[in-house]
Amino acid sequence: MTTQATTFTPHLGADPGDWIALLKPRVISLVVFTGAIGLIIAPGHINPMMAAIAIFAIALGAGAAGAINMWYDADIDALMRRTSDRPIPAGRIEAGGVLGYGIVLAIISVLLMGMAGNLCAAGVLAFSIFYYAVIYTMWLKRRTPQNIVIGGGAGAFPAVIGWAAVTGHISLLPMLLFAIVFFWTPPHFWSLSLYAAKDYEKAGIPMLPVVKGAKHTRLNVLVYALLLLPISISPWVLGLTGRIYGITALVMSLAFAALCWGVYADRQDAAGVSLNNDKPARTAFKFSLLYLFVLFAACAVDRLV
């Protein structure tokens, strides 16, 4: 759809796919997954239709935050090859309309969550949208090389929201799931940024490899992966989950830490730039996606078995 849209001039208006692209569908898929796991592992009962609507509300909220992010970041998106074809920088949708679209969707998502779930879940959803759109996108993304660490919080909310939608409160297990996603995000994104930093540099975003260099980033990838290890097994150690989750988390976290060690010890020049085409960083990035999926799936299996 996008290919078709770029063939014609902007005055023809946006393709429907452009309005969907504003919601960042790929991010939504992860959010839906973690949100659904939060719902599954929570003690108590929720009507299946309400559960489906609650997950939809989480997805819609994430999409709304993504649209507001695209509205605010349109200037830097235009500078980066990866994002220059997004609907606003490509001129297919007017920026002001996207802001309204994001705000309306955010309001609808919170209202739906309030009706299908409860006030607690709706409140956390509203805060997560605010966190991503304002605290991360508008405030910190362009100011600090720790932007990814802080941004990780936004991706960590869905499991908490899912849990809250069933129980009406937040307890230790969802907070630990929050912490797992929070500490998983830096090694995940910094592995990627090691071989995709040029785009960020062009846009002036202070990503860690741009500001502190590749060597420093490699060390941080390893440190966060090591921090993730005890946090990932803590639900098992504290007796909140069973052995299926515990052993899975231990094996996956050790494997992830080993791959991050590979990123740290990669053959590199004095500045830390890989002489190996960043092969370890690419492997660690791909594994990080599998890591989170397997860990959360194991958590659900553990609860259901």
Binding site: L12, G13, A14, P16, I20, M49, I53, F56, M115
Partner: peptide, 29 residues
């Protein structure tokens, strides 16, 4: 231009339909 406008209209109709069904579903439950 017409194809895109029609596509947007269908998308909006679908979104409104889904929203209405959800509100109805919540009310019934």
């Amino acid at each position: 231009f017409i194809r895109r406008r029609r596509g947007r209209n269908w998308l909006l109709l679908a979104a409104l339909g889904v929203f209405s069904m959800m509100i109805y579903g919540i009310a019934v439950v």
